[in-house]
């Protein structure tokens, strides 16, 4: 990390030997297959959303840094690019051009820079951007596009939509042959990236596996018409669960520090996701669940830390 002028950051110090910048670009690399799949499935419009979102994130970051008399070049450290990419992956493939711009502004300014920039944010920036858009313009955010090769051009609901969801087979879900957000749709591509991150030791298993495990267990118990009859494979393969569990809940800044904390965090995310999926009015609960648990992270850290440095109380 020599040569960069980061100020001293609070708790989430990165422990791996890699620099922040290297980690950011490796995560972006791990996300690429899924983006390629999204562009292949939905066509050019998804590439447009991804590019607009990434560019606006970097531009807003640089502008805000300039406003605070910091070096605007910090905006190229990869974190803004990653935020933009993740934001785009959580958006439908076709939408007015200004929507990703607003999303990028909210993610970068409201969720990240106002707290002091990288390492200081409490909530996951990309998710704040997505939830902001979801609450503000629910119509655009739920207008889905069918895969390019689908016969009927009329857009359909995502598999998780509660009323009138068409039936999907597991293979379609696994490969992404249905309507959905750009980056969450092809589970195969996401799995490739996730394995890469795990092998490179950029993320640990604790959060994603407890998160997904909890969702599967609870949907199996409560998801069906009677107890223990829920379709947990369906819940694993549809919606943003895999994307959220591997790439967003594991965000270095907004996750707990200890192993015990991560497990609590993962289970909490899982419970909230299932509660919203099965009972809430939104079709998808992953983003809300992660944001909710982000708010609890400081408390989790506080009570799972074995030893406190500095003054006791």
């Amino acid at each position: 990390m020599s040569g960069n002028n980061f100020t001293v950051s609070p708790a989430p110090h990165i422990r791996s030997g890699l620099s922040t910048r290297a980690i950011m670009y490796l995560v972006i690399l791990a996300l690429l297959p899924s983006g390629v799949a999204g562009i292949y499935i939905y066509g050019f419009s998804s590439l447009r959303v991804i590019l607009i979102s990434m560019i606006s994130c970097v531009v807003f970051e640089a502008a805000f840094l300039k406003l605070r008399n910091r070096d605007p070049k910090i905006a190229l450290d990869g974190s803004a690019l990653l935020t933009g990419l993740l934001l785009a992956y959580n958006l439908p493939p076709e939408m007015p051009f200004w929507l990703p711009v607003v999303g990028g502004a909210v993610s970068i300014i409201l969720a990240k820079q106002i707290f002091g920039g990288l390492g200081h944010n409490i909530f996951n920036p990309a998710l704040v951007g997505r939830v902001f858009l979801q609450i503000s313009w629910p119509v655009y955010m739920t207008t889905w596009k069918n895969p390019r090769w689908a016969v009927d051009a009329v857009s359909t609901a995502t598999p998780l939509a509660k009323e009138g969801a068409p039936l999907f087979n597991y293979m379609d879900l696994f490969l992404g042959n249905h309507g959905g957000c750009i980056g969450e749709v092809c589970i195969l591509a996401l799995a490739v990236g996730a394995v890469f991150l795990l092998v490179m030791k950029i993320i640990s298993w604790h959060i994603p596996f407890t998160f997904i495990g909890t969702v599967m267990l609870l949907t199996w118990i409560f998801g069906g018409d009677s107890m223990f009859s829920g379709d947990f494979t369906f819940h694993l393969l549809s919606g943003g669960l895999v994307l959220g569990a591997f790439f967003m809940a594991t965000d270095y800044v907004t996750r707990p520090l200890t192993k015990k904390g991560k497990i609590i965090f993962g289970i909490g995310c899982g419970i909230m996701t299932v509660v919203i999926r099965l009972r809430g009015s939104y079709p998808e609960g992953v983003s809300y669940a992660i944001l909710f648990m982000n708010a609890v992270v400081p408390l989790i850290d506080r009570y799972t830390k074995t030893r406190k440095y500095g003054l006791q109380k």
Binding site: P96, V102, L110, F132, I135, S136, W137, P138
Partner: peptide, 15 residues
């Protein structure tokens, strides 16, 4: 102009 629904909901007030 597409109004952002969020602003007349609770988070908008706090924001």
């Amino acid at each position: 102009f597409d109004p952002a629904l969020l602003f007349i909901l609770a988070p908008g007030a706090l924001l």
